[in-house]
């Protein structure tokens, strides 16, 4: 039973990582940049939904579940706009610049978001009210599964399937894949590259908002640096699964969450991150392009 409950909390954490990693991997696949500000968009999503839930539920007298939906939708809208703005203002002017310049700009954006949040919301952390509370008790109370864990896993699977269908079936999805293969050729085929990249950022940021809500619902401490560590871990997860690959990000996220949960439970709380990163290093040594990544040999 203990094992199962650790597995469930691992799946919960892993699903959150997977949702963030999906955003990371899409942006990386198309823009070939490490978007370090992604973790902070999660934090923004958390704060928006926190304030929105507070305001809507208390002022309007609507039922809680309905207020929660409004809060999530609002957070997604704000984060989408934010993601597109960041891309347009900070990353688009650097399309032709060396990748390190873009990386530093992303770090600048990350600092900017964190410190804006610090100024607006204060340094004191907020206790996030979970959008769905309660637990499902099985085996006469031997195993209790929080509803939020179930919701997180379901949402994660839905997003993964949705994104896979989107990139393989729709016109925009195909355009994204074309851009990630070769931007120049895609442009020659009449694809609007800038618009495609903006759309990718919009989707990635909307996912970040959902991840923010689910992350804070499971781990209810919200502060300006809330997004940093999950951001780094999700990035690790994306690399773990093979960066640029959607099923890879999903698999990487879930595995990372489960490893972390078991490491915390059975080995050491202090060294949980160490174990996660050690597994990543070992995987990359055996499969240099991640679990599901394509290894592209260099041509001379």
């Amino acid at each position: 039973m203990e094992f199962l409950s650790y597995l469930i909390s691992g799946l919960n954490l892993g699903s959150v990582y997977a949702i963030i990693a999906l955003g990371y991997t899409m942006v990386y696949g198309i823009a070939k940049m490490l978007n370090f500000a992604h973790g902070d968009v999660i934090m923004v999503g958390g704060f928006i939904s926190y304030y929105a839930l507070d305001a809507v539920f208390k002022k309007s007298g609507l039922p809680f579940w309905f207020s929660a939906i409004i809060a999530v939708v609002l957070a997604m809208i704000v984060c989408t706009v934010l993601g597109v703005l960041i891309e347009g203002l900070a990353y688009r002017p650097l399309r032709a610049a060396p990748s390190l310049a873009v990386l530093i700009t992303a770090i600048g954006v990350s600092y900017f978001l964190q410190n804006s949040a610090l100024l607006i919301c204060g340094a004191q952390f907020k206790t996030y009210q979970s959008i769905i509370s309660g637990t499902l008790n099985l085996f006469g109370g031997g195993l209790s599964i929080p509803y939020v864990s179930m919701l997180t896993v379901v949402v994660c699977i839905v997003i993964m399937v949705g994104l896979t269908l989107f990139t393989s079936k729709t016109k925009m999805g195909k355009a994204m894949r074309a851009c990630s293969e070769d931007k120049g050729a895609a442009q020659l085929m009449g694809i609007n590259v800038n618009k495609t990249i903006s759309t990718t950022f919009a989707i990635g940021s909307a996912l970040a908002a959902i991840a923010g809500v689910l992350l804070c619902s499971s781990f209810p401490i919200l502060k300006p640096t809330t997004g940093s560590m999950p951001g780094i871990k999700a990035f690790t997860a994306a690399v773990f699964g093979g960066i640029g690959s959607i099923p890879g990000a999903f698999l990487g996220g879930l595995l990372l969450g489960i490893i972390e949960s078991f490491a915390k439970a059975y080995i050491s709380t202090q060294l949980a991150n160490t174990i996660v990163f050690a597994v990543l290093i070992i995987v990359l040594l055996v499969r240099p392009a991640g679990l599901l990544g394509k290894y592209v040999p260099e041509k001379v």
């Binding site: 900070a90 650097l94 530093i104 700009t105 600048g108 990350s110 600092y111 900017f112 804006s116 100024l119």
Partner: peptide
């Protein structure tokens, strides 16, 4: 100060 630092960073890169 850190906000200004961040803005300076982005502007310099741009």
């Amino acid at each position: 100060r850190m906000l200004i630092y961040a803005i300076v960073l982005i502007l310099v890169m741009l």
